[in-house]
Each structure stands twice: as structure tokens, then as C-alpha cells.
Amino acid sequence: MSKQRTAAIVNGDPVEFLSDPGQTLLDVLRDELHLTGSKEGCGSGDCGACSVIMDGRLVCSCLVLAAEVEGCRVETIEGLAAGGTLHPLQQKFLDHAALQCGFCTPGLLMASKALLDANPDPTESEARYWLAGNLCRCTGYDKIIKAVLDAAAELRQDRKSA
């Protein structure tokens, strides 16, 4: 079983890694690149804890083969904050107590970022359906949805004043 060499851009940085043909992007992020912020909750695309943004699209990294990311840009939770400054979504999750155990949080934040990139002014219902692929067992989603809508409002305000 020979390993394949793949080159990609992860969180803005060029990376190269070797992977077995059956390894997923999640396996490589966690085991080869030591970016363990993306979590494995199911390995079958049903929980969203491994969500990353690949070439602008939200994906479950457990459903992407590592070799598929050749030449792609991958954004993970580790790249969401700009240096030492939290992304507004991260800050709003903290402000609204939108996490309890925190295991689903990285995936939810990446999914929320993709939502707000695509739709800066989502309704509650749009946010709920967009995030339906991200299971949270602790919060009942109430505070997560409030945090996302609040972050959206702040980002819109920022854009206006910019």
C-alpha cells in the first residue's frame, strides 16, 4: 500500500502530506497535521463535528479523501480566529453560552461561518436548516442559533461601518 503525496493550502499555509488511499481529510488533519480541532463524532457525515470549508464549500472532512484536496484551500477551526483576535462568531458563542461540552463547537462554528459567508442575514429558520447537519446534544440549539443570528447582525454592522 503506497502512500500518496498531496499538496494543499490549509488555513492559508501551504502543506504537503503523505496519506494512504483510504485516509480521509479528517484523518490527515488530525493525525498528520495535528489539527485536532476538527472532531470525529460519527465518521459518516451525520454529525458535522468534522466540518471544514474546502474551496469555499462546507464539507464533512470525514467524507473527503485526503488525496482529493490536492491543490485545494482548506479552512479549519484552527484558522478561524485572526491571529489572537476571535472571529465574531467565536465571540458570540462565548457571549451567549452557546456551548457546553464544546465537542460539536468547532464544526458548528465552521458551518456558521459558511452560512454567514453565503447569507449575511439569515432568518432563524434558515440558520436552523443550514446547521441541521451539525448535531449538538448539550444545548438544545437555542443559544447556538441566538449566537449565530447575533454574530450575523454584528458582521452586517461592521460591513456598513467599514
Binding site: G37, S38, K39, T76, L86, Q90
Partner: peptide, 13 residues
């Protein structure tokens, strides 16, 4: 909180 929203918090795996 910050550890958890930045992906740094270390879980079992």
C-alpha cells in the same frame, strides 16, 4: 471557552 471555540481543547481522542 476560548480553548473550545478555537479547537485547542484536548478531548479523549
Amino acid at each position: 471557552g476560548v480553548e473550545k471555540v478555537t479547537g485547542r481543547a484536548a478531548y479523549g481522542a
